[in-house]
Amino acid sequence: MSAITAVGLKKTFRGKDGDVDAVRGVNLDVAPGEIFGFLGPNGAGKSTTVRMLTTLMTLSAGQAHVGGVDVAADPHGARRKIGVALQEAGLDPRQTAREILVLQARLFGMSMASAVVRAQELLELVDLVDAADRRVKGFSGGMKRRLDLASALVHRPEVLFLDEPTSGLDPASRITVWDEVRRINELGTTVFLTTQYLEEADQLCNRLAIIDGGLIVREGTPTALKQELRTRKSMKTDPTLDEVFLDATGRTREMGAGEVKEV
């Protein structure tokens, strides 16, 4: 059984100036235990797809299953299978790290005693024991990300959705989050990761898909995608994932005045 499947996933937003098709028929099949990267330029439909897969947004058309559960027909069942850390580290700034984890665990049905034990395990996992009883308001961006990650894991989800988990972090914090993601994945959790950092996708993902204009335009392992471009363009050396991305999204690169511009 696949960890995630999506068939003909569509999302249309109704606006004053007419309908906008944000996602126009996405098909996905992610195997259990994979770290699957979901890449795309701004506004390509990455976050909208994640929000549909995580029950936060209704589907305009198509079907999606997570952990074998239909997200539209049984959203509560799907929520028990998934952990979610979205672009904004969704945390209550007035609570302490421990309080947030205990509450999250209790909302997943744990008793107070079990929730306290689970919170301590997770604080150790993300190295926040020393800050456990401080209010989140004073946390750095990296600490908030790690706490957000921990709160997505309280119920030991089968599938973890990470929407741009390292966006806005300094390089050291980014590497720390990558380590966490690898460790979580080694414990058996499937990870669905959206990112704009191609290096991140190259480092972490077994397989990835590139979405542009609401449609998946490339899908495969990083190596296979690079090999396909090298063959198709008769390149002498392996291209980078950046080049795969730019080729897939129809963008080109111009070097000018010492900086790289997308046009």
């Binding site: 190295d127 089968e158 460790r183 959790t189």
Partner: peptide, 26 residues
């Protein structure tokens, strides 16, 4: 960061000890 070990595999989903109800959650 020092690697940590979880005591339980991540995919052993936690079985709810309490069922969700509007009253309890509220």
């Amino acid at each position: 960061m020092t690697p940590k070990t979880e005591t339980t595999p991540a995919t052993t989903a936690v079985e709810p000890e309490h069922h969700s109800s509007a009253l309890r959650d509220s």
